[in-house]
Amino acid sequence: MAAATDIGIDLGTASILVYAKGKGIVLKEPSVVAYDKDSDKVKAIGEEARQMIGRTPGNIMAIRPLRQGVISDYVITEKMLRYFIQKSMGRRGFRKPRIVICVPSGVTDVERRAVEEATYQAGAREVTIVEEPIAAAIGAGIDITKPCGNMIVDIGGGTTDIAVISLGGIVVSSSIRIAGDNFNEAIIRYVRKNHGLFIGEQTAEAVKIKIGTAYQQPELMTMDIKGRNVVTGLPKTVTLTSEEIREALVDTVSQIVEAVHSVLEKTPPELAADVSERGIVLTGGGALLDGLEEVISERTGINTMTAENPASVVALGTGEYVEIMADFERR
């Protein structure tokens, strides 16, 4: 990767991160596009568009063109990619960049081709696709080229990718469409059912970050939230506790733990022994949920830790992937 115009993109359901060679992460924005149906034009992209979610007039829609790690709106994804590529390359973007972009490990060939095609359309000279768990492992500082088993659980916004990696490849993996967004949905459902209050996605996200937990905590945390009363339709404030949020998230967290368990069951014995010795590494924004490490450790009996800056590791790994694999192949 000689040229300075080589970039790695973590194309996430919730946010997009761009890594530039020699500069680190140059851009992190929500993967949201505000779109005007009447004039057929894109109004805003990224953070500006995210602030419009749930607050737009009828003709403007704030959409996430990626659903569960997969392109659900091709044209808009391409526009969004083009915008982020240009923004991250700045003025000197006259040479088309070589782009490494990552996809969840469970995507089909058709979905993979759609990502590749959209990246070319957005202005790439060359496109390399890398699977998310591999990028996550590289970004977390694991040497994936050794003949040794490492287990990565990458919890994004739309998908959770679980994989055991050895010798630069994925040996066993599973990709489930349950992740950070499902935590938010579970909180929204719980608050509506137990408090008779409608809240939006942004409020749920704030609750998850501030008092969300997957494991019983010694002391209760509380948070006041505002929403709309289901019965009267008027604004109302309620106080939520961290224990309530744990209860709200129990099912979603269990599904992730079950998936980790089933990948361990399919792992060859030698690699399983490596994993139990080295532990499980959590990456992705969803890994920031308090108490997730404890729940996975307790259910699997394997030490579980979260990578440093878990939300950025996939982008970092995507940026370093080409060099690492080139070295590996030259050996």
Rank of each mutant, 00 (worst) to 15 (best):
E258K: 13
I176K: 11
E265Y: 02
P269S: 12
A140Y: 00
T119M: 06
F183V: 10
G233E: 10
K79Q: 14
E185W: 11
G123R: 03
G200D: 15
E270Q: 13
E265W: 00
R189K: 15
A62D: 03
Q51M: 12
P235R: 01
G291M: 10
G123T: 07
R55G: 03
E126R: 12
E185G: 07
G233H: 05
D274H: 13
R67P: 00
D181S: 14
R331Y: 10
L289A: 04
S31D: 06
Q255Y: 13
A186Q: 07
V127A: 08
I256W: 10
I7F: 07
I7Y: 07
G24P: 04
V314F: 00
T283G: 03
N229Q: 03
I16R: 00
A248D: 08
I170N: 05
E293L: 02
V171S: 10
P147K: 10
I25V: 15
L249P: 01
N59W: 00
G286A: 08
A186R: 05
Q86I: 06
T252I: 15
I60Q: 03
E265N: 10
G24H: 09
G54V: 07
D154R: 03
V75R: 11
E298C: 06
M1I: 09
E329A: 14
L27R: 04
A62H: 01
Y35S: 11
A135W: 01
R64A: 09
K41R: 14
D6H: 11
N303E: 14
I209P: 00
I162R: 06
A124I: 11
Y190D: 02
E329F: 13
A315K: 05
D161M: 00
T119H: 07
M61G: 09
G69Q: 08
